[in-house]
Design a protein around this nucleic acid. Structure first.
Length: 104
DNA sequence: CAACTGACGATAG
DNA sequence: CCTATCGCCAGTT
């Protein structure tokens, strides 16, 4: 039985529109725990496949991909660019333009 | 049952 | 800008 936090987090992530991204902190806050970023990490690692979550649209608060090159970074960047998201010269995503304003 | 682990965040220096 | 710390908490070891 998943926690209420998990249910909300999953519901939110399943609603992220293409071409937009959200941060761990945002999802955690809207799911009811503004300090639950790590639980979001757990969810993405353990059940993104089962819950069909767009894991690539979840990034850290600086607008940067947290994966390391060679371990999914390239894949995630490619998936995002494929949705129209652009990266600046420092590989950062402009959250003011591509960040999704959650409203469930 | 204690210790450890995370694709993190906020804060302080 | 950078490193160092602490908080958070479910799932593993």
């Amino acid at each position: 039985m998943p926690s209420e936090f998990s249910l909300k987090a999953i519901k939110i992530m399943k609603n992220i529109p293409g071409g937009k991204v959200v941060t761990y902190g945002q999802v955690a806050t809207y799911a009811g725990n503004n300090r639950g970023a790590r639980q979001i990490v757990r969810l993405l690692n353990s059940s993104w496949e089962k819950e069909q979550l767009p894991w690539h649209r979840v990034i850290n608060s600086k607008g940067k991909i947290s994966l390391t090159p060679g371990d999914g970074y390239e894949l995630q960047k490619m998936l995002l660019e494929n949705e129209g998201i652009q990266f600046d010269e420092n590989d950062l995503i402009d959250l003011s333009r591509f960040g999704w304003n959650i409203n469930i």
